[in-house]
Structure formats: structure tokens, C-alpha cells
Nucleic acid binder design. Structure first.
Length: 434
RNA sequence: GCGGCAUUAGCUCAGUCGGUAGAGCACUGGAUUGUGAUUCCAGGUGUCACCGGUUCGAUCCCGGUAUGUCGCCCCA
């Protein structure tokens, strides 16, 4: 296939400054929120060996069967893959470095790009970004509830609480799930003549999804099908009830959706999704749950675990609506200058002002004063500091407030920093004047 | 991976029943050459996504490709 030189890869988007600034603000908020709950960062490589995901996510999931960027390293034949999700790499790193044995239970988070070769749409990209949280070594329902409650707080902090709601379910223990699956398949096979093509295709790959069909002709069959929750044992039910009790304690509203399943095989017991109706078909902005079997499955000691991932692109689209203002960081000072001696002085003055803590843009590229003042205005700077031949000859600088009334003033450059600090931040000078 | 729709100036979009194109914003220059966001004047704004076909002639019709977008599938 012929590629154009100047063309990004399909489904992989550049995040331009306007958006990237918003992303960084979002990331700062999220990191602060994670720290408040005692979560620590972990960073893992984007490449992993392919079998890691085949074993964890599941051989017969869509992710593994048709969406992984898997390839052979041309140099040594290693089977590599661009990670399609963050949980398995996190478990791998925790096991490889013995974090749990060394330091006990772990509360961790990560942030970064994930890769799935899907058909792109708005809010569904081939390279997308997630914040993920994983907790290892906690068996009780309190950690499940903690994850959900902390997310509820994040939505409030972001102003998204009206756009997102919570659905939860319990998948039970893996044996319980397996028995239900068997019963469900057996039931559906007795009604095979009633199923549509889609349902037949999913009968052995993902029978739970059939229960979610939109085909009205199947409603009666689906309604009478064996229910997963009828297969849950005492412990699973108690755990699920425990999670719900804590959610009620924290006054977090939720909806139990018995048809909620997740596309990754490793989940058990609690699963949850935060969904919105504002992003079309891409309704899920955050999903997660418990995966008590995964650590052992990947070769570790049996370790209870629970976590979630949130899609940054999807959340950013929601957040941009409630956060319409630009989040651009504006400089304090734009330094306008013309003439050789003046430019040299201005270069020094810029550094001098930065010593005082100011954000300073030194004009580059020449141009007349009119042109430079336009740039100063466009930059959003509060103050233009102007140095021409006259100022340079006297070791002085002029300054002018761009956003408020006031005459342009002129001072020796040695006094500029303190004077501007006083004017911009109302800092009193040593003699008490402002 | 399947089906539908879209692609025109830097941005948001008009338009040509087939005769090589516009608006607003932005940008550049000017209104006593050392002063911005207002006002006035002037001006580039463009392979009309790409490749091919039909035609005297295609931005427009047809086919393919690329990308985006909507739905399905699936998921964050």
C-alpha cells in the first residue's frame, strides 16, 4: 500500500497544543486525585510479548483475535505486541519485580497509550489513552467500593456528574460463571431455530452478549434464559452485597445491570461501567472490576485484585463541554525590542525577569514595533516590556499593561523586576510601597 | 471486520443543472516609518482529498484509494 509522506497512521491522532494543554490540566487533576487515595504511579513499556495478552485478556476475545498490533521483531524474531490494555502489563511488572512479596498490597496507577486495530470513530481510536488503577492483595468488597467511590468523586471534581452514570454487576466466581455459561449455551441450543445469525455466531464465542440483543424477535427467548445471578454462590453474593452496601454508605447512586459483561476474560465478581449518552455508540468512559484469578494465571501466587481503566479521549470530549474556556497558560511578559543593542539588552532583561519568577516570551524574528505589539497581544501576556534604541542607550525599559488601563512607564532595567512583581502580584516592596 | 454519509482557503462553511470558485474569521501590508485587541482601505488566500474513467471540457457525473464520521460488532 502506498503511503503519503505527510499523513499520520489511521486512527492515531496528533494532539495539538490547544487540546494538549487541556490534557495536561486533566492529567494534573487526575494525579492529584489518585494521590489523595494513596495510589502510586507505575510505568510499563508499550511493547510486551504477545503471549501475555493471549493468556490474560483471553484467546477468544475480539481484542486478541482481531485487534492486536502483533508482529515479529525483524531483528530477533521476538513475538511482540503494542499493548491493547494496561492491566496485564501491570500484573506482569508487579510479578517480575516481586512488589507484593516485598512490600505487601499495592495501590497503583498508570497512564498512557493503548493500541487496538479497530475501525476508528469519534471516541474510538487505534491509539487511545487510558488512566488505569490496579489494587493487588485486597480481597474484601471495600476496595471494589473504593474504586467506584473515588471515581464518583473525580466526576464531581470535573463537573461531569450529570453526564455519567454507574452500572454494576457481579460475574461471580469463575466456576459459577462457567456453570452458567454451560447452562446458557445448552438452553440456547434448544432454541437454535429461533436465533438470528448474530446470536448463532456468538453462541460459543460470547453467549452472554446474546442476552443484550436488540432484536425484538429474540426478547422472549432471552427473557427466559438462565440468569447469571441465579448461579452465584453465597460468597459471591455476600461480596456483591458488601460492595452495594458501601456504595449506599457513600451515597453513590448505581444501577445493577445483570446483563453487564466485560470483553476481557479475566474479570470475576464485581464488574462496573460508567456510561454516558453523549458520545453516541462509545458510551463507556470507564470500566473495570475484580480479577482475582489473573495474578495466579500469569504465574504468581493467588492474589486478589481489582482495577479499572478510563478512556481519556472520551472523558476529554465530555469535559471540553463543561470546561469551554481556553486553558492556555498565558505569559506574564512579552518582550518587544528593536535594534541591535536593544535586542541584546532585552535578551538579558528577559532572563532577569525569569529570575523573578515571571513567564516571559522574548520576541524572536524581528519585525517592527506594531508587528511585535500584535504578537504581544496575541500571546495573552499581561505586560509588554518594550526596549528600543532610546531605552538601550539609558539602560532602561518601558512597560505597558495590555489588559488594563494605565500609562506606559519607563524604568531603569535594574528596577524592572521588583516593580513588575509589585504591580502584577501586589507584592509590597521592602519600603512598604506597592 | 460489515453498511451508510462526508472531504472546497489556515479555521467554519457556501457554490457551480459539467465551462478551472466565494463569505465570515484568521493572516499580510497601509492610514506622519517607536506601540496591540476597536475602526477604515488594499491584498496571497485554493493541485476544489488522491488516482483513474466518461466528456470538446470534470471541483461537480462514474469507479477505486485514503482519511474522517454515523451505525453494527466490540470496547475505554
Amino acid at each position: 500500500m502506498a503511503q503519503k509522506l505527510i499523513q499520520g497512521v489511521k486512527g492515531m491522532h496528533d494532539i495539538l497544543p490547544e487540546d494538549a494543554e487541556r490534557w495536561e490540566l486533566f492529567e494534573e487533576i487526575v494525579r492529584g486525585w489518585l494521590r489523595d487515595y494513596g495510589y502510586r504511579p507505575i510505568r510499563t513499556p508499550i511493547l510486551e510479548f504477545t503471549p501475555l495478552f493471549v493468556r490474560s485478556v483471553g484467546e477468544h476475545t475480539d481484542i486478541v483475535e482481531r485487534e492486536m498490533y502483533a508482529f515479529e521483531d525483524r531483528l530477533n524474531g521476538d513475538p511482540l505486541v503494542l499493548r491493547p490494555e494496561g492491566t496485564a502489563p501491570c500484573v506482569r511488572a508487579v510479578l517480575e519485580h516481586n512488589l507484593i512479596n516485598a512490600a505487601g498490597p499495592q495501590r497503583l496507577y498508570y497512564n498512557g497509550p493503548m493500541f487496538r486495530h479497530e475501525r476508528p470513530q469519534k471516541g474510538r481510536l487505534r491509539q487511545f489513552h487510558q488512566f488505569g488503577v490496579e489494587a493487588f492483595g485486597y480481597a474484601g468488597p471495600d476496595i471494589d467500593a473504593e474504586h467506584i467511590v473515588m471515581l464518583s468523586r473525580l466526576w464531581r471534581d470535573l463537573g461531569l456528574e450529570d453526564d455519567i452514570w454507574l452500572e454494576i454487576n457481579s460475574l461471580g466466581a469463575s466456576e459459577e460463571r462457567a456453570r452458567h455459561r454451560e447452562a446458557l449455551i445448552a438452553y440456547l441450543e434448544t432454541h437454535i431455530d429461533l436465533l438470528d445469525d448474530d446470536a448463532r455466531r456468538r453462541l460459543h464465542s460470547n453467549p452472554l452478549r446474546i442476552l443484550d440483543t436488540k432484536n425484538p424477535a429474540l426478547q422472549a427467548v432471552v427473557e427466559a434464559a438462565p440468569k447469571l445471578y441465579e448461579f452465584l454462590g453465597v460468597e459471591s453474593l455476600a461480596h456483591f452485597e458488601g460492595v452495594q452496601a458501601l456504595l449506599r454508605e457513600a451515597a453513590v447512586p448505581f444501577k445493577v445491570n445483570h446483563r453487564l459483561v466485560r470483553g476481557l476474560d479475566y474479570y470475576n465478581r464485581t464488574v462496573f461501567e460508567w456510561v454516558t449518552d453523549k458520545l453516541g455508540a462509545q458510551a463507556t468512559v470507564c470500566g473495570g472490576g475484580r480479577y482475582d484469578g489473573l495474578v495466579e494465571q500469569l504465574g504468581g501466587k493467588p492474589t486478589p485484585a481489582c482495577g479499572f481503566g478510563m478512556g481519556i479521549e472520551r472523558l476529554m470530549m465530555l469535559w471540553a463541554e463543561v470546561q469551554a474556556d481556553s486553558v492556555r497558560a498565558e505569559p506574564d511578559v512579552y518582550l518587544v525590542h528593536q535594534g541591535e543593542a536593544a535586542s541584546r539588552l532585552a535578551f538579558r532583561v528577559a532572563e532577569q525577569l525569569r529570575d523573578h519568577g515571571f513567564a516571559v516570551i522574548y520576541h524572536c524574528g524581528g519585525g517592527n514595533f506594531k508587528n511585535q505589539m500584535k504578537k504581544a497581544d496575541a500571546s495573552g501576556a499581561r505586560v509588554a516590556v518594550i526596549i528600543g534604541d532610546d531605552e538601550a542607550a539609558a539602560e532602561e525599559a518601558s512597560f505597558k499593561f495590555m489588559r488594563e488601563e494605565g500609562e506606559q512607564r519607563r524604568l531603569p532595567v535594574a528596577q524592572l523586576g521588583e516593580t513588575l512583581a509589585a504591580l502584577l502580584y501586589n507584592v509590597e516592596e521592602e519600603d512598604g510601597s506597592v
